[in-house]
Design a protein around this nucleic acid. Structure first.
Lengths: 126, 126
DNA sequence: AACCAATTACGAAAAATTTCGTAATAAACT
DNA sequence: AGTTTATTACGAAATTTTTCGTAATTGGTT
């Protein structure tokens, strides 16, 4: 079983999900724009993630090109499950309500969610 | 600023939210039912949480009665914000969709959410 | 007042995560 | 081929979180 990424590992996965496979240098450059972080720190994290099976890598000349193995949506789901379990007493509905309540969502977005709900209800009654 | 609780601290907050103010022994007993944990471990966590300002305590004879200072919903919101930021690219709507999609929610629950959305839309147009 | 049982205080070990320095390696360039 | 430059490997320090052992304290009991 692939373990859940830690917080800093998630930062890296975000970069990989957003921009696709990249070198350590490229990934580090992007993290830099957020916060000071040493090159070897990023490298080490990627090596650890490789050991864990979170990313794969491919040799190109002498540099490795890292690629996320875990999908964004699967990771999102696991993170959600954890939050639901840890702070929403296991109720995903609770979470949805809270998220809707405090997000400055537009009418259009709310309509989208309504439409999605209707679709879910239909799918179920087939 | 009160710091965010760590994972184990959240376990304790859950107990406090669910059953109200309690002694270390009572809290520890409840955590025990989930997983082996030493009494002094729970005590230490509560002392740390007290230092952080997450809980208050009141002396009753020689024992302390601990009480959560942070509200459940405020904590939920902060956890959500973090998850939204960390894995949903800042989009709460994304999170809601994903949560709805993978939760086995009943028609009744889905209707509740629809009603809630309608209410949100109304509130906005006042 | 001395003892007992339970609680708290304190410090530190253990574990997990994050960070980086240094050395080894490889490619690219004179 | 020798030098420079960038990357990787390795190990360990630093930090944060979790865990618990031991000693001190307190209140109740004999």
């Amino acid at each position: 079983m692939i373990p859940q990424p830690t917080e800093k590992e998630l930062d890296i996965l975000q970069v990989l999900w957003a921009k696709g496979p990249q070198t350590v240098r490229e990934i580090n450059d992007q993290l830099q724009s957020e916060k000071e972080i040493g090159y070897t720190t990023t490298l080490k994290l990627l090596q650890i993630m490789h050991d864990k099976g979170l990313v794969s890598r491919e040799l190109n000349g002498k540099t490795h090109i890292y690629k996320s193995i875990v999908s964004e949506s699967a990771t999102q789901q696991k993170m959600l499950d954890k939050v639901v379990d840890k702070v929403f007493k296991g109720s995903a509905m609770n979470l949805v309500m809270q998220a809707l309540g405090n997000s400055k969502s537009s009418d259009k977005e709310l309509d989208e969610i309504r439409a999605y709900i209707d679709q879910l209800k239909n799918d179920k009654n087939d």
